[in-house]
Amino acid sequence: MSIILSKGQKIDLTKTNPGLVKAVIGLGWDTNKYSGGQAFDLDASAFLVDATNRCQNDHDFIFYNNLGHPSGAVVHTGDNRTGEGDGDDEQLVVDFSTIPSYVQRIGIAVTIHDAELRSQNFGQVSNAFVRLADEATGQELLRFDLGEDFSIETAVVFCELYKHGNDWKFSAVGSGFSGGLMSLCQNYGLEV
């Protein structure tokens, strides 16, 4: 049975699920019917950060142009440019057994591609969610529905995985940014 989280809640992952080695992070959303004439393209990304909440290099930023970390710790399964259909729109696979020792946190975010050019924002996105499932069993362990709290934001950190001692935990974040992917990258210490 999946645990439903609210914004700000944190939960143990590896301690309460000792067999969890690989997790599938499924991200989904719907776009509101909107007559701007431009299709929406939302993109999932992951930022592997150290104790100072910074990526050490560009390899620590996983997105549609860098689908996997060299360690195999995080792999993006591919860009879905339409978001059509039910279920996950994009997925990331996290392998807890290969995460480099310097990585203390993994920020999972979604941005709207060319949001400013297309006059789009998360106020026009609904039913956004993140879920985490055990890759080995397919069992969904937890889910966080983001709600409709956004307006002008063009990037949202959906959740974070963070290290606590030798274990990994999940934090339901739901924090929005204006300035899209560039703002998010700068937040995590990357030069754009």
Score class of each variant (00 low, 15 high):
29 W>C: 05
81 R>M: 10
72 G>I: 14
95 D>I: 04
184 L>M: 13
3 I>S: 06
34 Y>G: 12
69 H>C: 06
82 T>C: 13
174 G>T: 05
19 G>T: 13
176 G>S: 11
121 N>Q: 09
49 V>S: 01
9 Q>V: 14
115 A>R: 03
173 V>L: 05
112 I>F: 10
23 A>Q: 03
137 T>P: 08
75 V>I: 13
154 T>D: 03
59 H>T: 13
50 D>S: 05
170 F>A: 04
180 G>K: 01
12 D>V: 13
81 R>Y: 06
22 K>Y: 14
28 G>E: 02
150 F>P: 02
65 N>I: 15
106 I>E: 00
40 F>Q: 03
29 W>Y: 15
140 E>D: 10
132 L>G: 01
112 I>P: 01
92 L>H: 05
128 A>K: 03
134 D>F: 07
109 A>V: 09
15 K>N: 12
67 L>H: 03
23 A>L: 06
151 S>Q: 09
47 F>A: 01
95 D>V: 05
190 L>V: 08
186 Q>E: 11
138 G>F: 13
44 A>E: 01
178 S>Y: 07
40 F>R: 04
131 R>C: 08
192 V>I: 10
5 L>R: 01
83 G>V: 06
66 N>V: 03
119 S>D: 12
122 F>W: 08
147 G>T: 14
97 S>G: 14
57 N>D: 12
45 S>H: 03
142 L>W: 04
102 Y>Q: 12
73 A>G: 13
96 F>H: 06
